[in-house]
Design a protein around this nucleic acid. Structure first.
Lengths: 150, 150
DNA sequence: CACTGCTGGTTGCAAGATGAAACCAATAGT
DNA sequence: ACTATTGGTTTCATCTTGCAACCAGCAGTG
């Protein structure tokens, strides 16, 4: 069930990422994990996903090294699912999706959950794609080089 | 088939984004669009996806305002699919996924396609999540506020 | 114009994925 | 000791996916 290369386009890092995450539910699981969810039941109630699906996705995320299963922090005999460092590295992905959603799918003034800096309670700065020397880049300012050697 | 709210968690911008994109194929279509693909056949050859699936995804992306269908630029009677401004705004999402893939799914020195600054041919700077005043933020430095009023 | 191949699809069907619900074992609370 | 909760598994009906065959409209060729 590790399901190699659904997208055989695998010299592209985007395709490998997509393949590693698995599906949309998995991404929402990761989002909830960033937001503090750790237990099976928390994910299930938060997402409203069927339990068999959740089971499969959690297992896949653990197998893929995005989550790991650790003994529960409250001393009970249950287990918890926490982000690995690889999983935490998905932070910019989630933030990018969040900002795209905020900017395109909410009417002005429509309420929505908001990700804020814990220190100051402020909204985050919009992500910027920058060149090596710090210039902001549009899509048109970039090209893809196929198969770059080291 | 506009398929509203597969994820009823829809006060969350991440969920709305995910719902708007549709599925992984759609995301790879968008990636190819950033890389210059415009024609049905280009997407199909590049992705290796079944034609009926590609038809459905292109239609959904057009319906969702991510792509638009315009007369072909080469004077032929065919049509092309180009990113709208909403679609171009997905650039940070694609870049974030690409960087995550590069950093986690390629052995050092393993060749992969690379996104570079067209001006200087350099790799891009890694995306950073920043606070309003420009401090780099870890996941732990942030919290989600539910249902912020404007 | 006739012919031929490409482009951009549609349709039908088999196989796989998904989701709801029932069931269940182990744990925790009382 | 009893009961509720947690974290699943199993079953089954349904939806989605993907392959392959087919096809209509365009484009280039003689």
């Amino acid at each position: 069930m590790v399901s190699r290369t659904r997208f055989d386009d695998s010299e592209c890092p985007v395709a490998r990422s997509v393949d590693a995450i698995g599906d949309w539910w998995s991404l929402l699981i990761v989002r909830d994990a960033f937001d503090g969810s750790r237990r099976f039941g928390e994910f299930q109630r938060s997402l409203g996903v069927a339990k068999n699906i959740l089971t499969a996705r959690l297992r896949a995320l653990v197998a893929g090294g995005v989550l790991e299963s650790v003994p529960a922090s409250d001393g009970s005999a249950y287990r918890e699912y926490v982000l690995t460092s690889k999983g935490r590295a998905l932070f910019p992905v989630i933030v990018a999706l969040r900002q795209w959603g905020e900017q395109n799918f909410f009417a002005p003034g429509e309420p929505h959950s908001q990700l804020v800096d814990r220190r100051q309670g402020q909204q985050l700065r919009a992500l910027e794609v920058l060149s090596a020397d710090g210039r902001p880049l549009d899509p048109d300012d970039t090209t893809v080089h196929k198969l770059s050697p080291r």
